[in-house]
Design a protein around this nucleic acid. Structure first.
Lengths: 139, 139
DNA sequence: GTTTATGCAAATTCTTTGCAATACT
DNA sequence: AGTATTGCAAAGAATTTGCATAAAC
């Protein structure tokens, strides 16, 4: 994992500092996108502002992309493609309105919709909100 | 407009107070979804907390729905259908990363994607991020 | 030695709640 | 009278910045 990340950093022209690698590793190791605060909890050794700055950097270098969790917050997720200019690998997400968890819906890519003339897309968010199986069972 | 809104309120079992009507009218009159702060600017006479409470109420009564603007904030938009249980009229939006404007993409409804077993959807957000025609021209 | 990254603290931004006063039924 | 609504003020939550120190090149 470590070497792969370092290669990824070089590919995107970022310095692979220990902190950045830690943030990237945590993000890459998660099954669902994480918020800044969740990252802070998982990485007790790095300051919030620094995680934030790493994420901002990753974002501009298209190493991570941002998804909305449906409640005004943002979550971060490693990009799967290696593009340096756009986030072209996005998939849909499901946000449970009861427990707040966010799931990846990995079943193919997001269906495209036609854009009016002049609009230029760099990324797409597709978020379904509702109730997840666990919460439904419990209710 | 006023009468139509009052009828809408009755349909959704909300009391048509002056403030609520004002909030609804402002939302209905906008060409794009508004954030709480934008609403506050447009309605100088009503307190922020009150606009917020009206929106919260509207949300639970499916009179408005929430969309993400791609930067961690939320925007509110009048529902077009008259359902009292779900937001079934959603359309896609475009958020310009340069000027921050959010546009409605009115060209048909959002393509559905299949959900895994057990997931139950109540609403869908489809947000395209990128550069709008105005900003592209200027650059 | 100059540039880049980091940690801490604090500022900012935006959302949400408590509570007393007011309006409605 | 009793319930629902409102405005003000303040609490909360989360993001973002300033700045001094430390590390990397």
């Amino acid at each position: 994992m470590e070497e792969r990340l370092i290669a990824l950093f070089e590919e995107h022209e970022l310095r692979p500092t220990a902190n950045r690698l830690m943030v990237a590793k945590t993000l890459a190791g998660s099954l669902f996108p994480l918020s800044l605060i969740e990252l802070e909890h998982r990485i007790q050794t790095i300051d919030r502002s620094n995680i934030f700055r790493a994420l901002t950097l990753f974002k501009t270098h298209h190493l991570v992309h941002v998804i909305e969790d449906g409640s005004g917050g943002v979550r971060y997720e490693m990009c799967r493609s290696h593009s340096q200019t756009v986030d072209d690998d996005e998939h849909a997400h499901f946000h449970c309105e009861r427990c707040g968890k966010t799931f990846c819906l990995d079943y193919g890519s997001i269906p495209a919709i036609p854009l009016p003339d002049g609009f230029e897309a760099t990324s797409v968010n597709y978020l379904v909100k509702g109730i997840c199986p666990d919460c439904k069972r419990r209710s």
